[in-house]
Design a binder for these strands. Structure first.
Lengths: 242, 242
DNA sequence: CGAAGGTTTGAGACAGTTCAACAGGGGTGG
DNA sequence: CCACCCCTGTTGAACTGTCTCAAACCTTCG
């Protein structure tokens, strides 16, 4: 779900890995690196939590396949989705700053992930020199993604946010070799709204409006980007212009 | 400017350092560690840029004293302030995911910072084992801070955002041993508004309103938190209420 | 089949934006 | 030192995008 930053950084992480890994086709690299470390692979069912905010940090995770959402919760029970994690994305890293996870991670689909237990944090560097530097690179990608989101939230209106969201999804699918213009939204309208700091009704209305304009076709969770270039154009219009 | 996460993580970084460093008083630790690495200290004048978005990543920086703002810019020239960096905060780390900085870093005051040149990234681990793991910890703190901000932006109204901002500033000052209720805003109203995704007029209006309510006293850039507990109370009220 | 969860659409309200005018303060140059 | 000007901050009034509340519909699943 981080088409530019995270995906290039995963690629960079792996490109800098041992030659044997570097030579492999891109899709196999994450898997190979995790296997090189002798990591466990774990299956997570739809709606199941990988970890919850506040739990002791017992491991870091790398998504092998599937889709997760990460949610921060404050003391009053307000929730915000901070992102969606796909193949190659890191889960749980924000917990490194303390002794416990800083968010919930919940599977939106049947998913698989690799697990690096906390008791290996201090020895993994010896096993795979440069591990933590690469981890810092992955986290830098996440920070850049957060920053871009902040820019959009501050300067985009509802229509632009939804358009940007759809284009981001599309870019992700393309990066994984799937069709770039036929999307299946695996999250609810409420999730999308929460992620974009909009109400779910607003998301619905915007989708309907974009449909009426002929830019997209919407049928519940199936979306087709009919005019992706027009969507991209939308993003270049200043917020004040309706 | 990251009272809870970043400051505790700097502390943690240092707490895990060599015993000689660990034994020093907290305020001196960052300095000592940077000196242990033989880093250069650099002076930056008010309004001067440390680096600009897109420039090749030539170094990472740690703030020694002073205040910086970090600003992301998109292709249309829209700008968003992603944060303010104070003593102990890292600058430039988001650039690690690529070969160039992802934001501008500008001094708001006469400031000093330590510089780790890019050509030492690969050797610093040998000199100070655990360096990159600690760097990951610092970055995790930044991600957690971003997440908390996202939560506030999604669920707080203008009044709550400004109140949260003031309390964050106050917490920062307290962490650095200064008075917690007398603040000097070293950034403009436009900066504050940009950071909080509000217009500068809204920031002004909210400050005036909080002043009229007796919660704070405002005179241009001088702010006194008359009723910090009442401000904190504000944050616990759901957005829908007024 | 009924219940529960998710989606769509409408109508009205309001928080925050936009535009505009003005006031103060601090730095610069005469 | 004063006068000027620019930058910053303040306040008002009208507008509008988004939220809120409400009702209905559709799908899925027990």
């Amino acid at each position: 779900m981080r088409p530019t930053a995270a995906h290039t950084s995963s690629r960079q992480w792996l490109a800098e890995g041992p030659a044997a890994v570097r030579a492999m086709p891109s899709g196999q690299q994450v898997l190979a690196l995790c296997e090189a470390l002798g990591l466990e692979r774990r299956r997570v069912r739809r709606r199941q939590y990988v970890f919850r905010s506040g739990q002791p940090l017992h491991a870091l995770f790398l998504v092998h396949c599937g889709l997760f959402k990460t949610v921060v919760v404050n003391e009053d029970g307000c929730e915000s989705i901070t992102g969606f994690a796909e193949r190659g994305d890191l889960l749980g890293a924000d917990g490194l700053s303390g002794a416990s996870y800083g968010c919930d991670a919940q599977a939106l689909d049947m998913s698989y992930l690799w697990e690096l237990p906390a008791d290996r944090f201090d020895t993994v560097e010896a096993q795979l020199p440069g591990f933590w530097q690469r981890m810092a690179v992955l986290m830098a990608g996440q920070i850049q993604h957060d920053n871009r989101w902040r820019l959009q939230l501050g300067h985009y209106n509802a229509e632009q946010r939804v358009a940007a969201f759809l284009l981001e999804l599309s870019e992700c699918q393309r990066a994984q070799g799937c069709s770039a213009d036929t999307l299946l939204l695996r999250m609810t309208r409420a999730d999308i709204g929460n992620y974009l700091a909009l109400q779910l009704e607003t998301v619905t209305r915007v989708l309907s409006r974009l449909h009426a304009l002929g830019l997209i076709q919407v049928a519940r969770r199936n979306v087709r980007l009919a005019e992706p270039d027009a969507l991209r154009m939308l993003l270049r219009i200043p917020r004040a212009w309706h």
